[in-house]
Amino acid sequence: MGNPFNAEKKQTISLKQFKNQKVLILLSIPFIIYVIIFCYVPLGGWLMAFQNYKPKNGLLHSQFVGFDKFEFLFSNDQFLKVIRNTLAMGVINLVLGTVTAILFAILLSEFRFNRGKKLVQTISYLPHFLSWVIVTGIVFDVLSTENGIVNELLVNLHIIDKPFNFLADPKWFWWIVGFANVWKETGWNSIIYLAAITSISPDLYEAASIDGAGRLAKIWHITLPGIKPTFFILLIMNIGNVLNAGFEVQYLLGNGLVQSVSQTIDIYVLKYGISQADYSLGTAAGIFKSVVSLILIVIANQLAKKMGEEHLF
């Protein structure tokens, strides 16, 4: 299989090649400018993390305080808790999200009737377009102790004898977030795997059938290896996103009782950076998050490279 992401050997571009690709290079200029303006220029704001930033004085006239803000962050128990929450929910989301998406894609691809398949696929990715406000509303209703379907079911099956308030128990919070994510994103995440499965050559399946492979054997020996490159690329990209465990869902579902497990780095930034007007502290927390994400993505990439799998750079 071709490997568009891999440029193992350093290539030098000759003048001729440069001339040939002139059009492409010209076309890319606006996007480079776009990236500089919107992705790199704002990085200048990182200066704030090393200052005692006051909006009145602006970036240029605020007092520099070195690493004070970072010191405060790492001596703050709350922040350490927040990192733990973010990592935990990020990993749960990553694992649950990937597993369910692959399972769902395989199930769908094994579907015999084309029309039904399309219908199921369409319905399954519709929740992706709902806002979290609506999804958390649904979660509230489903888990409600008054007529919530989960509690009704558990009570009628005599598993519990009176309704249980899942949202009030810190033990359940991460999993509620995880499954809310699964409900919302499984269909959407499976699209890319479905596409990968479709691109596997039918010859392989035919050959396997002739060799006497059953359905499960075909899934195990052909489908899964066939989507492995896709899996690794997505894994690397998603690992970089682990610390983006979410903001809305935790913000909307959280309450006082579970706040020690529900707050993520983003919520912390909002709380201290914006609400308490300590923009420097918020920026410091944001920098920390970016740096960790970058490290994670590099580690994942190196590991994939070592294992001889698909990798980004």
Binding site: T145, E146, P163, N165, L167, A168, L252, N255, G256, L257
Partner: peptide, 11 residues
């Protein structure tokens, strides 16, 4: 109300 601490303002 057993749900009281998980209600948001609208609820």
């Amino acid at each position: 109300d057993p749900e009281t601490f998980t209600l948001n303002y609208d609820q």
